[in-house]
Design a protein around this nucleic acid. Sequence first.
DNA 1: CTGAAAGCGCTTACAG
DNA 2: CTGAAAGCGCTTACAG
Lengths: 337, 337
Amino acid sequence: MPSESRSGRPPTIHTVAARAGVSKSLVSLVLQNSPNVSAQRREAVLAAMAELGYRPDPVARSLVQRRTRTIGVVIDDLSNPWYVDLLHELRPVLHEHGLRPLLADGRTEPDAVNALSDLRVDGIALVGTPSPSAVAQVNELAGRLPVVVAGSREPRLATVDLVANDDDAGARAVTAHLVELGHRRIAHIVGEGEVGLIRRAGYEATMHGAGLAPETAQGDWTENTGIRVAMDLLRADDRPTAIFAANDLAAVGVLTAADELGLRVPEDLSVAGYDDDFFSRMRRIALTTVDPHITDVGREAGEVLVARLSGDTRSTATRLLRPTLVVRSSTGPAPGH
Amino acid sequence: MPSESRSGRPPTIHTVAARAGVSKSLVSLVLQNSPNVSAQRREAVLAAMAELGYRPDPVARSLVQRRTRTIGVVIDDLSNPWYVDLLHELRPVLHEHGLRPLLADGRTEPDAVNALSDLRVDGIALVGTPSPSAVAQVNELAGRLPVVVAGSREPRLATVDLVANDDDAGARAVTAHLVELGHRRIAHIVGEGEVGLIRRAGYEATMHGAGLAPETAQGDWTENTGIRVAMDLLRADDRPTAIFAANDLAAVGVLTAADELGLRVPEDLSVAGYDDDFFSRMRRIALTTVDPHITDVGREAGEVLVARLSGDTRSTATRLLRPTLVVRSSTGPAPGH
DNA sequence: CTGAAAGCGCTTACAG
DNA sequence: CTGAAAGCGCTTACAG
């Protein structure tokens, strides 16, 4: 093992300098690819580094450079796998720029934003609908740290960039799809937070535009609530012939409720969701839904953060990606059509 | 904003000391709850900290203490949501001990272990089947850093703790369940790596014990391969009446293949998986499977790491949690029983 | 092109 | 109980 000195500690620039017969400063310059180093000395230093297995200590570097090359990622709810696709594209963007995600669960860690800020992260990404405490803490940061919100529509602060999909357009598209299939009684299970409100508004606008009466029931983002709410809706005398749930997890709950009540999908009931979660693609589920291009949201959120870190001082903005309607076999013509 | 000094930089122990009229060392002692500080001075320091909004810089602390309170978490494949439940319990354990997970994707980042080690993480958790390069890098670490493997059965190195479920027992339980249902032709779709081999061995042992001939087909952990392999198996003249797939994702592929071929589940074909992934609980899927208690695996992995960091020097060990058979509606009596 | 010095914000012995 | 000093491993002006 050439990588350890006699002291048992990993080599430092000091060790390298001694080995190469130069000063510590010179080693540092080589480390930073400074052009002001003669080829001969550069070679000597590089050779010494290789022999010793030298790896620069990022902690020391962080201390003097005042940046940790670390991004705090606060995920609203680590147990909801919705964030998986988003993280999948966010991480490589950070990685390309020498940044790493430091994870926190916003749900179980109300102080996450402050904690990450104390840790001197270089920036923060809020993934999913942030908790009120997270919003308050971001507000207090007052732009001292770049913050990007990914996949949510709040908070809309002057100091925060936001990347999401156009929830209004998505909700309109899926509602219009159901209207075109001849459905008149189309219920909507409402989601939480700003995203829930926007999807609901898109649904209502489309219903009104078609001369139909909206019918909403409050839900959340979970499958269980989807089951419960759908049960109530479907047991009514004049039950809807279509249900648009605010997300796929809730829509799967609707499927379950329909199975439970002996209703065939889509013959007796059309079901649509939102998010295009990976399980929605399973043929057993085959859910009509809206693809919010969440991996693109993740990538763009990473790019925004990277740009801010490299000095982009343009005013913060909201970027809305255009979502796509994905028609699968959970929706079909209204009964009698 | 009382938290910033005129210089625009956050307050340091120096600022606090000046404000409280004491030396820097004293501030440091207060920070560490040293008993050797008079109540009066302690109060003065605490008050100064509060007024200034002082937050100790963990970077400086890391440099001198030689630990970053950060754990590198290498997830074999960030796009396979299998790890979600594991992370869900691993993170809180770390958090309770002032540690945070620094994420890496083992699949897209072959150098992840070295990179995290260079970053001076205090320990490493390998989640899922590690890549060969990750194994090699862990081997090179030679115990310089505590490493725990969670949810996999490899590598079995003298320097590595391992927490997983008893894949052999789980595979035996699910196979026995199918045998008891009267199935004679039970095929197994084999998974990858050591875990795949162990589950296969459990299946084969149980088949032999029941006087039945094992029938295996090589798969991987994906749904698509599950579909393809199941198609081949089910199109054969003497098709199996039951298929045990090495994980739930592949089992869902089997369900899809069965639907495609017009086979009813479980009347014509019983299907079982392994992992009890969250989608398996959806009533549309309702997969008979093995619950490996992955959240417990995550928690124990975290506890092992924490123990190592607090000086536990007992020889490394493998902990195998007892898995549980979960019978749902995808399995039933063999045709004719 | 190169080296000696100062400093990043802490902690840790070491004296008193 | 308290303070002055050294040092963690780097980078950053600053002289030559």
